[in-house]
Amino acid sequence: MNPASPPAAPSAPVAAAASRRRRFRLGVWPFVAIFALFVVVALAAPWIAPYDPNVQNLFGRLKPPGTTARNVFYLLGSDELGRDLFSRILYGARISIAAAVLSVVLSSIVGSLLGMAAGHFRGVVETIVMRTVDIFLSVPAILLAIITVAVLGPGFLNVVIVLGLTRWPRYARVAYGQTLAVAGQPYVRIARFMGAGPMRLLLVHILPNIVGPLTVVATLEFGLMVLFEAGLSFLGLGVQPPTASWGAMLSVGRNYVATAFWIATFPGLCLFLLILSVNLLGDPLRDRLDPKSR
């Protein structure tokens, strides 16, 4: 494992790399707007959704976008139980974003604390934590999530717990490397001489100085968590019906692809746009804070 190296000293190659990166970036601002829109929609779903996302209308099953049945106007069409797809997509944003936020918070706390402890205490703690990290990283993430959900059972809370507890090694690795880099700094040594205990050292002196790279990991993980929640729900292992989740809606839509293409198309489009916007926001951040991962 490589302790993350400090940012390279500025030089001509760095300038060249910067210009290269600038070229790669496609105007980021529209994607900031898209991401913000999703967050607003998730927060305000109960007030913007025209209908209850779970109310069935058996006379309005599989209606194409823009049709009206029994006084219900289906802007984006209806699903196999006559529920309004538009309202379900709005509510689905809540599940996607909430699952991603909660699992990122959980995994970043667990991972950062363990990684910092490993970098600070060294010795046995370091060996145990970092070997465990290696082991977690050698199991394909989706398989680890699947077997854990298979044990714990499906459901929103279990998905968050599973994602939180299987994704911490990424943070631990970064926190470990950064802590090692910071530990030798004069201010940390002085704080220790002045009698700061390990908790105070880690949380007050070290954490604020390594929070940047950890934020980058969190940004990259956020998109992945959105994808994982949707993937688990698509497989029937995530959020359970009738709760609206984009992944579960796609799974229904797959069965009606020949007769009602809208059921899968619109939730998928939202999922794609949300992940794309997060990835595009994360990339410049990563370039700036972690020169190695270009």
């Binding site: 496609l26 994808l227 993937g231 796609l250 797959r254 794609f272």
Partner: peptide
């Protein structure tokens, strides 16, 4: 290339 990177396989598959 950027778009493909953010495309969930279960959506591209259905499309």
């Amino acid at each position: 290339v950027f778009a493909s990177q953010s495309m969930p396989t279960f959506w591209s598959g259905i499309l």
